[in-house]
Design a protein around this nucleic acid. Structure first.
Lengths: 217, 217
DNA sequence: CAGTGGTCTAGACCACAAT
DNA sequence: TTGTGGTCTAGACCACTGT
């Protein structure tokens, strides 16, 4: 079947396959989790488009498959105390101020990720007052910051009542949670980020030189 | 609650919270997907240990959290025609022979991943005849191969009837599927691998230098 | 209004393990 | 035998949408 094509209604599937509707729904939920189909509460169930493949760090120019238009929409910005997680990343005090930016990342108008990014406020005065729709790394360059390395941790989560609606996914849908820290050439942590991707719509890809630690698969 | 502690039975939860058992099960399934609890069909429901954190592309010496003992158990080995996916990775013909090794990776005796690895057979005569429990990359070094970079793609899958039992997970549990290609210093693809992790038990971490492509977050 | 998926109920039977 | 989770049933009501 082709993307966009409609599947039979759940009630019809349950009759034709001689199972209860709950059982038919469970089977469809597996396909939904795999990203093969999607459901619309009022219209029905449809074949999904293939997953997008994004590079780690989610860079707008670096989408592998699924051509289209990238976009980042600012949901909110805030200046606040760092708190425990960001303070640990930056090696600062929990009360030190940080800039926080939450953005919705789209591909072809389809929401694929919610990105919450933290920066030390003292390094970046006025950072929140200017353009935040484009590349934040380009903005950092304006402050004379040269980035060097990223470390990221990925795990599977369940989309909650806060993130799910932003991604137009139902609560309970599978998500990929990525925690990122980006360092500049002096080894200082400049960026701390928490990204949540729609796991049914996205695959992540990573290039990694093995440099001096070839070793022990 | 502490790891290993038992939760009340589903039937009891459904009474005390005044919901049907199916509804209680659904709530528990969210916690199970998050890796916070696990269920044993005959013993009950228990609080899980924290997830392990593994580094991408490497293993035994590189576990971040969750100290314990790593192990790799060979499930099977095989010499076969490359097939479409491996041929594309190696840039060879689909009929060229490859060595294939499937191993079960454990941490503290707990199965965390199934790893299926492909190597061009002509480069590695006798590769399957020797020790395969330890580091395969060390074995490659014996053939004079120096590895250089890895590229990996990660996506969320549902564990099927083949992989699920190997990981001692029930069918339908969430998994992380990683496709890896490792290249040597001449730019030749040496290793093609398909890994499946228990998503409820594992987080993946990646270090990545940004080198010459700082860009456009 | 009819039709969709989302949710929930109150049962039922199963396999399995411990007692 | 008892108790556990795993599965399934045959309904029900809801919110929402398009006609």
């Amino acid at each position: 079947m082709s993307p966009g094509e409609a599947l039979p209604p759940e009630r019809e599937l349950s009759v034709t396959h001689e199972v209860s509707r709950m059982t038919a729904r469970k089977a469809l939920s597996v396909l939904e989790g795999e990203g093969l189909i999607f459901r619309d509460a009022t219209r029905g169930t449809f074949v999904a488009k293939p997953r997008l493949t994004l590079r780690v760090g989610s860079f707008s120019k670096e989408v592998e498959r699924g051509g289209g238009r990238a976009g980042a929409e600012v949901i909110w910005t805030r200046e606040q105390p760092a708190g425990q997680a960001a303070a640990q990343a930056f090696g600062c005090d929990e009360r030190d101020p940080v800039h926080v930016i939450q953005r919705l990342r789209r591909w072809d108008d389809e929401p694929v990720a919610v990105e919450t990014t933290y920066y030390p406020a003292n390094l970046l005065p006025g950072f929140l007052d200017d353009e935040l729709h484009g590349s934040l790394w380009d903005r950092l360059a304006e402050y004379g910051i040269t980035l060097s390395t990223t470390t990221a941790t990925v795990e599977v989560v369940t989309l909650d009542a806060e993130i799910g609606p932003l991604l137009q996914a139902r609560q309970g849908a599978p998500g990929l949670h990525m925690t990122r820290q980006t360092y500049d050439v002096t080894g200082r942590c400049i960026e701390y980020a928490q990204d949540v991707y729609r796991a049914d719509r996205v695959a992540l890809t990573i290039d990694r030189p093995l440099h001096d630690r070839v070793g022990d698969s």
